[in-house]
Amino acid sequence: VTTYKLVINGKTLKGETTTKAVDAETAEKAFKQYANDNGVDGVWTYDDATKTFTVTE
């Protein structure tokens, strides 16, 4: 299990959150659900070296 980070650069929501997941794909699903629940819809990137997803509106 690895800790992944999400950086949110939204129009109305900015911040960070983390999740523990077995792989990046599982973390991405959780983060996309989180973003959707919070009304954030943007461009996604992922940096494997830092295990960090970024979504920018």
Score class of each variant (00 low, 15 high):
1 V>K: 11
1 V>A: 12
2 T>L: 13
4 Y>K: 01
4 Y>P: 01
5 K>C: 07
5 K>Y: 15
5 K>H: 14
5 K>M: 08
6 L>Y: 01
6 L>I: 03
7 V>T: 05
7 V>A: 04
8 I>T: 03
8 I>M: 08
9 N>D: 10
9 N>K: 11
9 N>R: 11
10 G>M: 15
10 G>E: 03
12 T>H: 15
12 T>A: 11
12 T>M: 11
12 T>I: 13
14 K>Y: 12
14 K>C: 09
15 G>A: 14
15 G>I: 12
16 E>Y: 12
16 E>V: 13
16 E>W: 13
17 T>G: 05
17 T>R: 11
17 T>V: 13
17 T>K: 09
18 T>L: 09
19 T>E: 05
20 K>I: 15
21 A>Y: 04
22 V>H: 13
22 V>P: 14
23 D>Y: 04
24 A>L: 10
24 A>T: 14
24 A>Q: 14
24 A>E: 07
25 E>T: 12
25 E>D: 11
26 T>M: 13
26 T>P: 02
27 A>I: 01
27 A>Q: 01
27 A>G: 02
27 A>T: 01
27 A>L: 01
28 E>Q: 11
29 K>F: 07
29 K>L: 10
29 K>Q: 09
30 A>V: 15
31 F>T: 00
31 F>N: 00
31 F>Y: 02
31 F>V: 02
32 K>W: 06
32 K>Q: 08
32 K>T: 04
32 K>E: 03
33 Q>N: 12
33 Q>V: 09
33 Q>K: 13
33 Q>G: 06
34 Y>N: 02
34 Y>T: 03
34 Y>I: 05
35 A>L: 10
35 A>H: 02
36 N>L: 15
36 N>A: 15
36 N>C: 09
36 N>Y: 14
38 N>K: 13
38 N>F: 14
38 N>L: 14
39 G>W: 05
40 V>P: 02
40 V>E: 02
40 V>F: 11
40 V>G: 02
40 V>H: 04
42 G>D: 01
42 G>E: 01
42 G>H: 02
42 G>Y: 03
42 G>A: 02
43 V>L: 11
44 W>K: 00
44 W>H: 00
44 W>Y: 02
44 W>S: 00
44 W>N: 00
45 T>P: 00
45 T>Q: 07
45 T>K: 06
46 Y>V: 01
46 Y>S: 01
46 Y>I: 02
47 D>R: 03
47 D>A: 04
48 D>L: 06
48 D>V: 10
48 D>E: 14
49 A>H: 09
49 A>I: 11
49 A>F: 11
49 A>S: 12
50 T>I: 06
50 T>K: 07
51 K>N: 08
51 K>E: 04
51 K>G: 04
52 T>F: 02
52 T>M: 04
52 T>H: 02
53 F>S: 00
54 T>V: 06
54 T>P: 00
54 T>F: 05
54 T>I: 07
55 V>D: 00
55 V>E: 00
55 V>M: 04
55 V>P: 00
55 V>W: 02
56 T>G: 04
